[in-house]
């Protein structure tokens, strides 16, 4: 069980310069994530969760500390990110959006066809392959974003509150679809959310962060069996207790975050 970690963060910190002086967004975050773990980071708004993800995805520089993602296969990209909000290209149709990473990497056309049609099938987008984003609903657009990330077959997947803009029903559907697709290969995932429900529903390991500066407050392991049935989970006693426990951790942080705003 003690495989070397796939992702490890070691004393990661990030400081921004702002008008009112230096702001510490991340403070000394250390964490090991084993291969194949669905790790969910949950915390109040503005706790630096997104910053954390952007640093490990290589989109932002860290101020101090280190992180590493272990490479197992040089031919595959290191990470792919599902962004918060609309990130699929309005000028490409669904198919070209989903194929974006593969095309950039110069994968052969027949292979692209096979991979993209697989993930469009899995996300229920097959019929919409020729559609442009403006013709799709928010939920459909986020499915394209998920298909694009999975199709690129990265070593690790990063998801930054991918469902936060969706309504409750769409959110449940997409969580279910995400779990189904994830079960195929069980990639290592870091998933950011502010929803405790979502965290327990999806995760193997839940990292609770403090309000700014962002530190790790607690790490909770979720041992709910997989594959999970999202509906059945709702009446599971353990599920309820985990939600309760994590809310307990978060409660003081949410209050603290609110106090800072006021």
């Amino acid at each position: 069980m003690d495989a070397p970690p796939k992702i490890s963060l070691d004393g990661l910190s990030k400081t921004f310069a702002s008008r009112s002086g230096l702001v510490t967004a991340l403070d000394n975050v250390s964490l090991n994530i084993a291969p194949g773990t669905f790790c969910v980071v949950v915390g109040p708004s503005g706790c630096g969760k997104t910053t954390l993800l952007r640093i490990v995805a290589g989109l932002e520089e860290r101020t101090s500390g280190n992180f590493s993602i272990r490479r197992d296969d040089r031919s595959r990209p290191l990470n792919a990110m599902v962004f918060q909000g609309d990130s699929i290209f309005p000028w490409m149709n669904v198919w070209d959006n989903a194929a974006y990473g593969l095309k950039l990497r110069g994968v052969s056309a027949p292979q692209i066809r096979e991979i993209v049609s697989h993930y469009l099938d899995r996300t229920g987008l097959r019929r919409f392959a020729e559609y442009y984003p403006h013709q799709l609903s928010g939920g459909m657009r986020q499915r394209v974003s998920i298909a694009r990330a999975f199709a690129n077959d990265p070593e690790v997947l990063f998801m930054d509150e991918p469902f936060s803009a969706l309504d409750e029903q769409n959110k449940l559907l997409l969580q279910e679809e995400l779990l189904r697709i994830w079960e195929e290969h069980k990639k290592t995932v870091i998933f950011i959310t502010h929803s405790v429900d979502e965290a327990v529903t999806l995760g193997d390991k839940i990292v609770i962060m403090t309000a700014s500066p962002g530190r790790i407050k607690a790490v909770v392991d979720v041992n709910l069996p997989r594959p999970r049935n999202i509906l059945e989970l709702r009446r599971d006693r353990e599920f309820g207790e985990l939600v309760f426990q994590i809310w307990g951790y978060l409660r003081t942080e949410v209050d603290a975050a609110r106090a800072q705003v006021n």
Binding site: A57, G58, L59, P77, N79, A80, M81, F83, G85, D86, S87, F89, Y100, G101, L104, R105, N152
Partner: peptide, 17 residues
């Protein structure tokens, strides 16, 4: 929107791409 350039960076698009 800046997010599209982030996507490009994330998927390894160089200057020309």
């Amino acid at each position: 929107s800046k997010i599209y350039f982030d996507v490009g960076t994330n998927f390894g698009a160089g200057r020309w791409k």
